[in-house]
Write a protein that binds this DNA or RNA. Structure first.
Length: 451
DNA sequence: TCGACTGACACTTTTGAACAGG
DNA sequence: ACCTGTTCAAAAGTGTCAGTCG
């Protein structure tokens, strides 16, 4: 963050995912996220670190959910199988971080949490939760937009990041018992379902308990969160409440988790086991590359670039750190969850002292029924007349407009970018720099009409 | 018949109001 | 009149499970 203005060139923005080990452990077995009518939080929830922002420039942070492919899945014999074509895309909503807009120093001060982001399967949802289809694969996409307020977003630079390990399957009930166990082990709210927990009624048959584990139980309750349950994950997500440093157990846990290599997804893809899937061998490569926001041929001129190719200082840091970069970063960044609601800025100010760049009251001016969410569907209508729709991503093809994100199917993806094994801690990054109105108007993130 | 979905339930954490004490 | 810390209840977030629905 040091240096003069030159240090803040476009493309130097760096985003890293908090709790990459936790995400990875879920990803390895195939992350599932419960979706309910009233809305369900994600677990793990999206939490990121940002650097390379201009401290005093204001930014808006958005998250949306992108379908991984055009298929519906079913859980069959311990693995996900394609069960047909995806259902029509529900209204595409984007979650706006409640602190938005806030200066760069605010975003960089500590990790940014999307704890309160909720997923729903209710297409008529009035609360502004992100609407997903059950039994479909998705991954979250993070957008950082330099804009003084929500109304100037349209004319602003925005950059998009995705993390391969954050992909998940939306479900109404857990399918993979391993996922359930992992959630129970790591989510404080689910403590009651842990083997060592106090509940005697629950968890009777689905997840058989290791016999050798039982004798430990009496003494294990207090140690639960330190050994059995990964201190790393719970702590980093909730360390505001638990607040101890447990460096050693952290690493230990991470190593243990890594041993379980293949997820139901990756195993199929890497071993070609999914013979019933219409996603062929190319999709395996695509899977790695699909974490990118696709840059179709028509989009290439728009200064698409990745960190791996960018000579920015942050990219060199990233490459030297690789997947473990997060660990070193963690020591520098206070692991304080930023509560994404209206109290967040309050509490932060209290905790860290009031910054001269304190965040503005979130969305005070946003004419929105529910803070934090943008409905992208409406946005299409607000597109300037005569504008050539720019294609970002739409696995369903052009017949199913994905709001303003509509675009061609995977066939027009750029050549796959093979991500290395330690890709996880670093976001795949896409910078869209719209230097003038015309250029930007061809690639709107959303229009006023959606607010 | 089967799989996806729903809602009630028990359990947990979080939050904020009320209160006491300095 | 403040500030701080404690207590407590309500709210909210979990997975489970039985039942419903298509």
């Amino acid at each position: 963050m040091a240096g003069g203005p030159d240090a803040y060139l476009q493309g130097s923005i760096r985003m890293t995912l908090e709790d990459p080990d936790l995400w990875k452990s879920f990803h390895e077995i195939g992350t599932e996220m419960i979706i309910t009518k009233p809305g369900r939080r994600m677990f793990p929830h999206c939490k990121i670190n940002l650097s390379g922002l201009i401290p005093c420039a204001k930014y808006i942070l958005l998250v949306d959910m992108v379908p991984e492919d055009g298929f519906r899945y079913k859980w069959n014999k311990e693995k996900w199988e394609v069960a047909g074509k995806a259902e029509p895309q529900p209204p595409c909503r984007t979650y706006l971080h409640p602190d938005s807009p806030a200066p760069g120093c605010h975003w960089m001060k500590q990790s940014v949490s999307f704890l309160k982001l909720k997923l729903t399967n209710n297409t008529l949802d009035q609360h502004g939760h992100i609407i997903l289809h059950s039994m479909h694969h998705y991954h979250p996409r993070f957008h950082i937009i330099q804009a003084d307020d929500l109304f100037s977003v349209r004319w602003s630079v925005f950059q998009t990041f995705t993390f391969p390990e954050t992909s998940f399957t939306a479900v109404t009930a857990y399918q993979n018992a391993k996922v359930t166990k992992l959630k129970i082990d790591h989510n404080p709210f689910a403590k009651g379902f842990r083997d060592e927990g106090t509940s005697t009624k629950r968890r009777s048959n689905k997840l058989p308990v290791c016999p050798e584990k039982r004798p430990k139980q009496a003494a294990a309750v207090s140690r639960d969160s330190e050994e059995e349950s990964p201190p790393d994950f719970c702590r980093s997500s909730y360390d505001g409440y638990e607040g101890e440093e447990m460096e050693l157990p952290k690493r230990k846990e991470a190593e243990v988790v890594k041993e379980e290599r293949y997820s139901p997804w990756t195993s199929e893809r890497e071993h070609g086991a999914r013979t019933d899937s219409p996603v062929g061998a190319e999709a395996r490569d695509l899977y790695n590359a699909e974490q990118l926001v696709p840059a179709p041929a028509s989009y290439q001129p728009y200064r698409f670039h990745e960190y791996g190719k960018s000579p920015s200082p942050s990219s060199s840091i990233c490459s030297s750190n690789g997947g473990s970069g997060r660990s070193s970063f963690e020591s520098r960044v206070p692991d304080v969850a930023t509560v994404p609601d209206h109290d967040a800025s309050k509490s932060r100010g209290h905790d860290m002292g009031v910054s001269p760049c304190a965040p503005q009251p979130p969305l005070a001016t946003a004419p929105q029924d529910y803070p934090g969410v943008l409905n992208m569907t409406v946005a299409q209508a607000g597109k300037p007349a005569g504008v050539i729709g720019h294609h970002i991503y739409n696995p369903y093809g052009t017949e199913q407009p994905l709001g303003q994100w509509s675009g061609p199917g995977p066939a027009q993806y750029p050549p796959p970018h093979h991500l290395t094994a330690d890709y996880t801690a670093q976001a795949v990054h896409h910078g869209y720099h719209h230097s003038n109105v015309a250029e930007w108007s061809q690639y709107p993130l959303f229009s006023y009409s959606c607010w």
